[in-house]
Design a protein around this nucleic acid. Structure first.
Length: 740
DNA sequence: CCGTCCGAGTTTTTT
DNA sequence: ACTCGGACGG
C-alpha cells in the first residue's frame, strides 16, 4: 500500500480516529461517544481493509438497522469508487438478517426447514397462546407476554426447551419450560422461526458444527460490529466463534448509549471486552463534532449520575452555543403547542423542517403532537404511528403470501382461513386441526381432504377450494420469474377475495379517509419496488440463494417485511419534522431536538422506577435523546397528562433535577392556546392563573402551581412550595401573588 | 356460521 | 380510550 493511499483516506481524521481505522493486528474496541465520527471511522476502516488487499467479500459489517447497513454500504462505495474498487460484495446487514441468511444457506446443518417463515410479534404471541392451551398448563398467573419474555431469555442464553425443562426448579419454572417446549413444537410444525431463533440457532450452529464454522470463518475474515453495547449473549457468542480464528474483529459502541437491556442486551459485552479478548486494543473517541458545548456538557452531567459505566470525557469541538431549555407546561396539549411554537420559530430563523425532531418515550405520546402539527399545517412524519405492516388488511394479504411461500405456516393459515368469510368458521377449522393432529399430517393436507375430519359439507367445500387455490398460486410462483412477483401479488389479492371484501368495507366506512384496498395495492407496488431495487444492485452473492423464480423473490420480500425496523422508514429527505421514540432516534442527529414528557413515569418510565439498573438505562435513554441535538435542545413536561382516559397530575422527571443547573427554565405562559376548551376550569382563565406558574404566598413563600380545579363555589389551587411542600389553597382566600 | 354487543385488560421501548 | 375475545341472537 502506498502512502498516498493512506493520506487520501485518513485526511481530516483525528489521531484516535486514524488509529481506529488503521489498527489491524487483533481485536479492537472503539469506544465512540455521541457525535464522535463513529460511522466515519467504520466506513473508512472498511475502505482501508479493501485497499490494503482484503477481499470485499471477506468483510461482514453488522449494523443495528437495515437503513444503517444501506447507508454504510453507500458510503464505503463512495470511498472506494474513487479508485475503481467495488463495495457490493461487502456484506452489511443486521444481526437478524445475517442470521436468516446463514440459516437459509445451512438449513440442513442447523436443523431448520429451508423455507422457514419469520414470525412477527403478533404471531409470536398467538403461537405462545396456542402453546399455553396445548400444554394444558394452568395459565391463571402466566400471561403470554411474560412467558414470551422468558422464552426469549432462554433463547438468548442458548438454553433449549429440554434444558429448560430439566433445569426448572420450582412449579412455575416447570410450567414456563413446558410451555416453551410446546411453543417450539408449534413453530416447528409451522416451519416458522421467531426473532430470537435467527440469533440463537446461528450461535449454536457455529458453536457445534465445525465444518460450518470453518466455512464461515474462512468467508468472513474481517468482522465489524456497530452498536456493540446493544448486543445480547447469543450475538456475542456468535461473534466470538466467528472471529476467534482470525481475530480480525472490530466492535464499536458506547456503554452510555446502551438502551436495549430490556431485550437482553448485555452491557457486560462492551464493559468487559478486554476480559473476553485479552490482546484487545481500545481506542476512545470522546470529541463531539455534532453538538454545541452547552448541550454536550448537560448530557454529560446527566449521565455521570450512572454508576455502571466506563468513564469517558466528552468534549464538544464546537462553540458554546445556546443552553438547553426546559419548559413545564400545564398539560400535554399545551406542551404540544409549545413544541409547535418552537418549530415555527426555528423555521422563521431559516431552519429547514427536516432538521427538527420531536422525541418521546412512548409511541402513545405521538398523537397529541401529531394533531398539533397537523392543525398548524407543519409538514411532519411520524416514524411508526401504527406501522404499515401492522394493519389488518395488510396482514391478511401477507398471510396469504406466507402460505404460498410456506404452506406449513399454520399461524398464517389460521389468520386467513375465514377472511374473507367463506363459510369455514372456528368450529370446522378446529375439527380440521384436531384431525391433522391425530393423524400427524400437515394442517394444509388436512384442509385438502376435509371430509375425513367430519365437517359440514359447506365448510368442506370451502376448505378444499382454499387449499387448491394456495396450491395453484404456489405452482405459478414456482414457474414464473422474479419480475412477475408484483403481478402475482395482485392476482392473489383478487383471487383470495380480499380485494372485494375490503372494497365493501371501504364503502361502508367511506368517511374514514383511509382506504384498505389502497393499502393492499401498496403492498403490491412495494413488492414491485423491492424487485426493481434488487435487480438494480444485481445479485450480491450473499450466503443465501440467488433468486430466479417468483417464489424466491417472494421469500426474500417476506423476509424483508419481517425484519424491517421502525427507523427504516425514517426519511431525512422528506422536508418534514420527524416525530419518533427515543429508541428510534438512536444514531440520528437534528439541528433542533424537542424532548417531551420529562415526567416521573414517562421518562424515566414507570416500569423502571423500582430497579436501579433499569433507571440507569432510562438515564442513558435521556442522554441519547439530548445528544441527538446539534444546536438547540428543548425539554418539556406536562403538569397534567391524560393516559388511557385518566387525567393525572405528574411529577417532574428526576432528570430535570439532575440537570437543573444546565437548563434555562422557561416561565410558562402558554398563551398560544387560549381558545382551548379542555382547560380544567374557567375560573382559572378569569384569574389568569395556570399550572406551572410561580406564585408567592405571605406565609408559605414561593411555589409552583400544580393544578387548578373548581371546589364548591370557588376554585382550589394546588401549589408546590419550595419551603413547606404541597398545599391546596382556595384561590378566593389565599393571598397569592403571581410572579409569572 | 356470522355479526354485534359487552366486558376485560392495557403492559415502553423493537429485531 | 381502545382493542380484543367471548357470549349470544339471528
Amino acid at each position: 500500500m502506498t502512502s498516498s493511499t493512506q493520506s487520501s483516506l485518513l485526511e481530516g481524521l483525528t489521531e484516535p480516529q486514524q488509529k481506529a481505522v488503521l489498527y489491524q493486528d487483533g481485536p479492537l474496541l472503539v469506544l465512540a461517544g455521541p457525535g464522535s465520527g463513529k460511522t466515519r471511522v467504520i466506513t473508512h476502516r472498511i475502505a482501508h481493509l479493501v485497499r490494503s488487499g482484503e477481499l470485499a467479500s471477506s468483510i461482514l459489517a453488522v449494523t443495528f438497522t437495515n437503513k444503517a447497513a444501506g447507508e454504510m454500504r453507500r458510503r464505503v462505495q463512495t470511498l472506494l469508487s474513487e479508485r475503481g474498487q467495488d463495495a457490493t460484495r461487502i456484506l452489511a446487514c443486521t444481526f437478524h438478517s445475517f442470521g436468516a441468511r446463514v440459516l437459509r444457506g445451512y438449513a440442513a446443518e442447523a436443523g431448520v426447514a429451508a423455507d422457514f417463515t419469520v414470525l412477527d410479534a403478533d404471531d409470536q404471541a398467538k403461537a405462545c397462546k396456542q402453546a399455553m392451551v396445548e400444554s394444558g398448563e394452568g395459565t391463571a398467573h402466566l400471561t403470554p407476554r411474560t412467558v414470551l419474555n422468558e422464552i426469549s431469555g432462554f433463547k438468548d442464553l442458548l438454553i433449549s426447551s429440554d434444558q429448560a425443562v430439566s433445569e426448572a426448579r420450582d412449579w412455575r419454572a416447570r410450567s414456563v419450560a413446558r410451555i416453551y417446549s410446546v411453543y417450539e413444537k408449534v413453530l416447528r410444525r409451522s416451519s416458522a422461526l421467531d426473532f430470537d431463533d435467527l440469533l440463537c440457532r446461528v450461535a449454536l450452529l457455529v458453536r457445534n458444527h465445525e465444518s460450518v464454522r470453518n466455512q464461515l470463518q474462512k468467508r468472513f475474515r474481517n468482522i465489524l460490529v456497530d452498536e456493540y453495547q446493544d448486543t445480547n449473549h447469543a450475538q456475542f457468542s456468535m461473534v466470538l466463534d466467528l472471529a476467534k480464528q482470525h481475530r480480525r474483529l472490530c466492535v464499536v459502541g458506547d456503554p452510555d448509549q446502551s438502551i436495549y437491556g430490556w431485550r437482553g442486551a448485555d452491557l457486560g459485552n462492551i464493559l468487559k471486552f478486554e476480559e473476553h479478548f485479552p490482546d484487545a486494543r481500545v481506542v476512545a473517541l470522546g470529541e463531539n463534532f455534532r453538538s454545541t458545548e452547552l448541550i454536550v456538557h448537560a448530557a454529560s452531567v446527566l449521565v455521570q449520575n450512572n454508576r455502571q459505566r466506563r468513564h469517558k470525557e466528552l468534549r464538544s469541538m464546537r462553540g458554546a452555543g445556546e443552553a438547553p431549555r426546559y419548559s413545564r407546561c400545564m398539560d400535554e396539549r399545551l406542551e404540544a403547542a409549545r413544541v409547535v411554537q418552537e418549530a415555527q420559530q426555528a423555521s422563521q430563523n431559516g431552519m429547514p423542517w427536516r432538521s427538527m425532531a420531536v422525541l418521546y418515550r412512548m409511541n402513545s405520546m405521538s398523537r397529541v403532537l401529531e394533531e398539533a402539527f397537523r392543525r398548524e399545517g407543519i409538514p411532519h412524519q411520524v416514524v411508526r404511528g401504527t406501522a404499515f405492516y401492522d394493519r389488518r388488511e395488510v396482514k391478511d394479504l401477507v398471510g396469504y403470501l406466507r402460505l404460498v411461500a410456506n404452506p406449513h405456516d399454520e399461524l398464517a393459515l389460521s389468520r386467513i382461513v375465514n377472511v374473507p368469510p367463506r363459510g369455514l368458521g372456528s368450529t370446522s377449522f378446529s375439527k380440521i386441526e384436531l384431525h391433522a393432529a391425530r393423524k400427524g399430517i400437515p394442517l394444509i393436507d388436512a384442509m385438502a381432504a376435509p371430509k375425513e375430519a367430519g365437517v359440514l359439507a359447506r365448510a368442506a367445500t370451502a376448505a378444499t377450494a382454499l387449499a387448491a387455490k394456495i396450491r395453484g398460486w404456489r405452482h405459478s410462483a414456482e414457474t414464473q420469474s422474479a419480475e412477475s412477483l408484483s403481478d402475482m401479488l395482485g392476482q392473489i389479492a383478487r383471487e383470495s377475495g380480499l380485494e372485494s371484501h375490503y372494497l365493501a368495507e371501504d364503502r361502508e366506512a367511506a368517511d374514514q379517509g383511509e382506504s384498505r384496498v389502497e393499502n393492499l395495492a401498496q403492498v403490491v407496488s412495494a413488492a414491485a419496488e423491492f424487485v426493481a431495487e434488487r435487480s438494480m444492485q444485481e445479485s450480491q452473492d450473499e450466503v443465501g440463494t440467488p433468486w430466479g423464480t417468483a417464489l424466491d423473490a417472494l421469500r426474500a420480500y417476506l423476509e424483508r417485511i419481517a425484519l424491517v425496523s421502525d427507523s427504516d422508514n425514517f426519511d431525512p429527505e422528506r422536508g418534514a419534522v420527524t416525530l419518533m421514540t427515543l429508541h428510534a432516534a438512536k444514531g440520528l442527529e437534528f439541528a433542533l431536538v424537542c424532548m417531551v414528557g420529562l415526567e416521573q413515569g414517562s421518562l424515566p418510565h414507570a416500569r423502571s422506577l423500582d430497579a436501579s439498573g433499569d433507571l440507569e438505562e432510562e438515564r442513558r435513554l435521556c442522554f441519547v435523546g439530548m445528544t441527538r441535538a446539534e444546536d438547540r435542545l428543548l425539554l418539556t413536561s406536562a403538569a397534567v397528562r391524560t393516559v388511557r382516559g385518566q387525567t393525572l397530575a405528574t411529577i417532574e422527571s428526576m432528570f430535570i433535577r439532575e440537570l437543573n443547573n444546565e437548563l434555562v427554565h422557561e416561565e410558562e405562559t402558554n398563551e398560544a392556546s387560549d381558545d382551548d376548551q379542555t382547560l380544567p376550569s374557567h375560573s382559572s382563565h378569569r384569574s389568569g392563573l395556570r399550572a406551572g406558574m410561580r406564585v408567592r404566598h405571605p406565609l408559605f413563600g414561593i411555589g409552583t402551581v400544580e393544578g387548578i380545579s373548581p371546589r364548591g363555589s370557588g376554585t382550589a389551587v394546588r401549589v408546590a412550595f419550595a419551603a413547606v411542600g404541597h398545599k391546596t389553597l382556595m384561590l378566593e382566600f389565599a393571598k397569592l401573588q403571581i410572579l409569572g
